Simulated assay, not measured.
Amino acid sequence: MPKRVLFYARHSSDDRLCPCFDRQNYHAKRFIKEKGWKLVLTCRDEDIGDVVFTAQPGVHKLLEEVDHRSVDVVLCHTLDRLCSSLTVAARLLHDLKAQGIELWAADPGVQIKTKDLIDYYCTNPGKPLGDGRHLEAKPDDLYEVEHLVRLPYGYRYTGAYNADRQYVFGYKVLDPEAADVVLRIFQMYADGMSPAKIAAVLNMEGVPSPYSGTWRDATIRGDRSRRSGILNDEIYIGRSWVPGRDYYDYAPALRIVSDELWRRVKLRQGFSARRAAP
């Protein structure tokens, strides 16, 4: 019976620095075919910076499959496309080994063993498992909130206990005080107040801004076409974008703004854009 393979890829928008998803996928499928294995699942994340390992959707799915022992091999293109630090790699390898699951790198086509990790991350990062880029070892950051990707204003991270009674950070919840400010911003704008005036009111009242500075109209207004700025972030109506996908997941528990209030804001934005057009 062929080994069941879960392929994990981390996509990069800059193909000059690291291979894009298509290239990683191509090499992985070719390697799986050469080995006579069977690809049963592909997990994918976006390269969005320094983020807690378990907070990434693709990694979260990978760990679920590991817990269920539904695969025999976890395959990545190069080790750095899976784990960015020695401590993360060592912990993952320990968990895989406990479940009888192997970890392989399609380039250069080797099984990754614990003894290889020091050589890759600390001694000779160019060989045998990577492409020459060195990311220095950090403290174990699997469960530390300060390493998480910054959330939109109105939300905070919390954690939960897994089946092994380990407390895992990486879950997004409402921040009640900030959520009230978000709702107020939407209401003030829908009622006719400009982003600049809203920012002035919040600063006058001493309301903390998203980045601990002063409120600016650009923070509120943003860019509608890019979905930036508080007034354009669809997370506030419960649409949660998952890295690696081109669509939104619905997360009703994260909703702050009603559909009616969102519609009023969009109508006013559209009217303002038409009025500003030549």
Rank of each mutant, 00 (worst) to 15 (best):
residue 47 D to K: 03
residue 274 R to N: 10
residue 223 D to Y: 12
residue 179 A to P: 08
residue 135 L to I: 12
residue 11 H to K: 11
residue 189 Y to S: 06
residue 192 G to P: 05
residue 105 A to L: 04
residue 64 E to W: 05
residue 205 E to S: 02
residue 218 A to V: 15
residue 103 L to F: 12
residue 82 L to T: 06
residue 237 I to L: 09
residue 223 D to F: 08
residue 103 L to N: 09
residue 23 R to H: 08
residue 115 K to D: 14
residue 194 S to W: 03
residue 244 G to W: 10
residue 222 G to W: 11
residue 35 K to F: 02
residue 100 G to R: 01
residue 182 V to R: 10
residue 1 M to C: 00
residue 94 H to E: 15
residue 30 R to H: 12
residue 251 A to Q: 15
residue 108 P to W: 07
residue 89 A to K: 07
residue 177 E to L: 09
residue 83 C to P: 00
residue 229 G to I: 13
residue 100 G to N: 12
residue 51 V to T: 03
residue 201 V to Y: 05
residue 205 E to H: 01
residue 147 H to E: 12
residue 214 T to P: 00
residue 186 F to P: 06
residue 232 N to Y: 10
residue 273 A to N: 01
residue 262 W to N: 06
residue 164 D to I: 11
residue 262 W to I: 03
residue 141 D to W: 06
residue 154 G to A: 02
residue 240 S to E: 15
residue 83 C to K: 03
residue 26 Y to C: 07
residue 33 K to D: 11
residue 82 L to W: 01
residue 131 D to Q: 09
residue 150 R to F: 03
residue 256 I to D: 09
residue 84 S to Y: 01
residue 52 V to A: 05
residue 98 A to V: 11
residue 17 L to A: 13
residue 128 P to W: 01
residue 192 G to I: 06
residue 132 G to F: 02
residue 143 Y to R: 14
residue 113 K to E: 13
residue 131 D to I: 12
residue 266 K to Y: 00
residue 273 A to P: 00
residue 85 S to K: 09
residue 228 S to L: 13
residue 192 G to K: 04
